[in-house]
Structures are given as structure tokens and as C-alpha cells.
Simulated assay, not measured.
Amino acid sequence: MMEITQQDVEKMAQLARLAVTPAEKETFAKQLTQILTHVDTLNQYDTTGINPTAVAMGQVNVFREDLVRPSLPPDKALANAPEREADGFVVPKILEER
């Protein structure tokens, strides 16, 4: 089993340009060591002949067929718009002049 030290965490943080506190270094070192221990446990299982998969449950495409259908008439689509123009709705200005 490989143990991650606080110096390892400090080096990774430096490479990632992250600022970490001493308490975070200690926490991350423990957490990363636990992760590596778990991976080491998984490595003991024989996976020979098992193909890698992206989805464990064998999902299939669930998209519906693309069909052309009539859309809402403009008056009905814009019925709840707070402010309208002839062929659409008005978006309130939110930018300030500087």
C-alpha cells in the first residue's frame, strides 16, 4: 500500500496552483491514502476476460423519434409575456450605463 504524505499533497497543490492550509494537507493526505487503499483492494479481483464498459446497466438510447408537428400559434405562445412586440416579446434591459 502506498501512503500519501503531506509533502506529496503540497507538491500536487503546487503543480495545480492551489493554496492549501496545513489542516487541508493533513486531511487530503488521509483521504488520498484511503482512495489508494480502496483501489489496491479492487486490484485483487481477477477481471481477465471482462470487457470495460462505460455503463454498468446496459442502457440503450431512450430518445424518441424526431417527428414534425405543428407548433403553438404566436398569440398563444406569447400569452403570458409581460411585454410584447409585433412578432415576439420584449426582454428588459439589465445593463447599466457606465
Rank of each mutant, 00 (worst) to 15 (best):
G49R: 09
T47N: 00
D75K: 11
N51R: 15
V68G: 09
G58K: 03
T48Y: 08
Q44E: 02
I50A: 04
N43R: 13
N43I: 01
A56D: 15
Q59F: 03
L72T: 05
R84T: 06
A19T: 02
A29T: 08
K30G: 09
F28S: 07
L15A: 12
A56W: 02
Q59G: 04
E26S: 12
A81N: 15
F63E: 13
E10C: 00
N80A: 14
A19C: 06
K11E: 05
T33P: 00
N80H: 13
K25P: 11
A56N: 14
P70C: 04
V9A: 04
E24Y: 12
F63H: 14
V55W: 10
T47D: 02
A56C: 14
V55P: 01
I50M: 07
Q31N: 06
K11P: 10
E24L: 05
V62K: 14
M12N: 05
T21F: 09
F63R: 09
L15F: 12
Q14G: 03
A77W: 08
F28Y: 07
A86Q: 06
G58I: 01
A81F: 09
R84L: 00
V62A: 08
L72K: 10
R69E: 15
K76C: 02
D46G: 01
D75P: 15
L36E: 03
F63Y: 14
F28W: 09
V9Q: 02
T27F: 15
L36G: 05
T21D: 00
E26A: 14
A19Q: 11
T37G: 04
Q59A: 09
R84W: 01
S71I: 06
T37W: 01
D66T: 01
K30C: 03
D66N: 12
D46V: 01
A23D: 05
Q59W: 10
V68S: 03
T47S: 04
G58F: 00
E10H: 12
L67C: 13
T37S: 08
Q44R: 03
D46C: 01
E24H: 12
D40M: 09
T37V: 00
A13S: 08
